[in-house]
Structure formats: structure tokens, C-alpha cells
Design a protein around this nucleic acid. Sequence first.
DNA 1: CATCGAGGTTAGCGCTCGTTAACCTGATGG
DNA 2: CCATCAGGTTAACGAGCGCTAACCTCGATG
Lengths: 206, 206
Amino acid sequence: MSRIVFMATRTDAPTRREQILKEAARLFAERGFHGVGVDEIGAAVGISGPGLYRHFPGKDAMLAELLVGISGRLLTGARRRLQEADEVGGEAVLDSLIEGHIDFALDDRPLITLHDRELDRLRDSDRKLVRQLQRQYVELWVEVVRGVYPALTEPAARSAVHSVFGLLNSTPHLGRAGSLPGRGATADLLHRMARGAFGSAAEAEA
Amino acid sequence: MSRIVFMATRTDAPTRREQILKEAARLFAERGFHGVGVDEIGAAVGISGPGLYRHFPGKDAMLAELLVGISGRLLTGARRRLQEADEVGGEAVLDSLIEGHIDFALDDRPLITLHDRELDRLRDSDRKLVRQLQRQYVELWVEVVRGVYPALTEPAARSAVHSVFGLLNSTPHLGRAGSLPGRGATADLLHRMARGAFGSAAEAEA
DNA sequence: CATCGAGGTTAGCGCTCGTTAACCTGATGG
DNA sequence: CCATCAGGTTAACGAGCGCTAACCTCGATG
């Protein structure tokens, strides 16, 4: 079962550029893209306002890189999981997809928040790219879900997938990391709920 | 079963003030609070920019009234449903709560979007009020859910409720009213998924 | 050791935005 | 028939924003 996978765990310090992206993601998620000034982003990494322009051509570019990065990582992660687990069976693939999405939702809460909140602030070309990546991610899920629950029509499966994303992406609303009963228990709970939601979606689909 | 309930269905035209609130909600949901100018809101109702100040003391006040109104209506609606259905049994109450939330999510999509997106743009006092209303709404659900699924601990029930809100509030992401298989079918699907999610949350809660 | 580029700094420009001021108008009621 | 007032209008102000210009500093390099 267990296969050795190269995990890119880094030990070196994050670059200034990465610091900026991380803090910008946090601030954008907290107060919205238009609600955060470049001076604030700079201050969050210890430099001041216009210093950011040594690393990014503009504020828009930071948001674009964040959103494209999120969508891309979600999609490539899902494709990798699909390849790794498709010999085992559809159920295992679906569980792996759910697990991957939960990991992302729990570990990168600000990005999850940005992901469906600030998409309209992008240039047309970037927005189209992100939308395309998101669409491919959804379609990948839809196919796997329909494999496990053949009773679902395609539109129903698509709606169900979007709704389960809503369920899994609710982590930012789950109290601030103190009231939670631990990461593992939360991940388990979300996983069970997602499976239960899909299962009930497939029941009595007249 | 069926009890006659006074539904405040209005036949008169909406006041200018209501027009403004409706259009402001739509615009805020589409482009974010900071992304919409007062001139745009005015143009959406046929008057120009500063004319809005005959109806509201400022842009903030529109957002505040929208968010307080949402939270309040959700809470009072839930309390009414609790009273109406608590003789019938816990299951019926939970189904009624789910139905009410789905109605709201399907009929007032922009408000659903605003509701968890722009809360931080409020004055402290308004934000506290909205948070208090939201908390009471959540606690009401938690009690009902624990009545139906006694296996759930209180923290688990609270997490489950937040997650189901995420599921039900996913309606804005469900294609633009053309790809949906009809309102009734969508409501049914969401309802089944919510019940299934709660049911699986309660299973194997070790 | 001189040079040079990466990565900062502060000053300030131009634009947009929320808001106010001053004025207009048409329906209403004594 | 005139006063009033609700509900508009346009002009303009002041603050804040993203971004550029100009300058500084310091470690690496031939």
C-alpha cells in the first residue's frame, strides 16, 4: 500500500518574495484586496511600501500569483492522487481527493478564503486561467464521484461537488485554532461529512 | 399538519431605500465593499452618487443595515420554525431549519455572499451585534442537531453546523441559474446532503 | 580597489473615492 | 397662492491609494 513519495519538504529559509506572498495572502484574506495597502504588506515583512516593487510589478501581480498558484497546486495535487490511487479503486481515489482538499483547507486557510473571494479582482487573462484550472479540478472530481456513485447525473454530481467544496472550505469559520478538537479529529470529521454528503446526494436521485 | 401562517407578501412597489439596499447588496457581492463606489450604487437605481445621502448617512451604513438585517432575519426565522415544529419532534425541527436556510441561500444569493465576506468592514458596534446574532443562530442549530444526533459532542456539533452552513451557502458557486436542474431539485439535493453530512458526522464519533 | 547590481529608502505625483456644500424642483397642505 | 420639504442635482474638497523617481548602501566580483 504505502509507496515512497518524494515530499518537497524545505529546510532553507523562505525567500523575501515568499514572505511577501504569505503575508499578502493573510492580509488579503483578513481585509479584502482593496482593503489592504501596499504599505501594510511591506510593513508585514519589515520593508516599507514601495520596496515591494523590487519583487513584484504591482499589487495586482501578487494577487494573481497567489490565485494561479492555489488553483494550479490543487489541480496538480489532484492529478497526482488520481494516478497514485486509481489502481486501488474509485473509493480510494475519492478518499484521497477529499484528504488532499482537507489538508489544503486546514493548512492554507487564507488561500482558501482568497480562492473564491477575490477572483474578480484579476486581469481578464489571469482570471480566465484561474477559472480554467478551477474547472478542470471540478471536472476531475465529478468524474471520480460519478464513478463511485453512478446514480448521480452529471449536473447533480457537479452541484454536489461544489457543495462539498463549500463544506470543506468552511475551515476558516471554525474557531481560531483553539476551540477545535485537534487537527486530526477535525480532518476526520470533515472527511466523514463529505462522504456522507455525497452518499446522500446519490440516494433517491429520481 | 398545515397551519395557516401570515406571510408578509407585499404587493406595493419597493421604496427607493429598498431599491438602494438591494442593488448595493448585489454590487457588494459582485465586486466587494471597497470595490464599489457610491456613484455606481446610485447609477444602479437611477440617481447619481451623492443623492444616496438623502437615504443613508454613508456607505458604511448601507453595509451595516444589510448585514444586521440578514443575521436578524435568519435568527428570527429559525426561532419561529423552532416554535412551530418542536411539538412534532427534533427531526422535523432540523428539517425545517435546513429548509429555511436553503430558501434563504437560494433566494438571496448576494446576501449570503456578503454575510461571511464583508463582516470585518463594519464599525465595532455593528460587527459585535452581527456576531452576536450569528452566534445565537449557530447555537440554536447546535442544540437541535445534538437533539437529533446525541452521539455528537458539543464541539463536534458546532463544527458540523459550520460545515453544513458552508455546504448550504455554496449556492452562489452553482452555475448562474441556467445549468441548475431547477430550484426544487437543487433544494432537495442540498437538503439530502446536509442530512447526510450530519448523519455521517455522528457516526463513529470515538 | 573600483564597480555594479540587488534591494532598500523617502518624496511626491496623479487619481479615485467618500463626503459635504450649495443649489434646484415639484408635489403638498394650510 | 405661497411656504415647505423630500429628494434630487453639480462642484469641489480632502484623504488615501498605487506607483514612480531619485537616491542610498553594501556585499560580491573581476
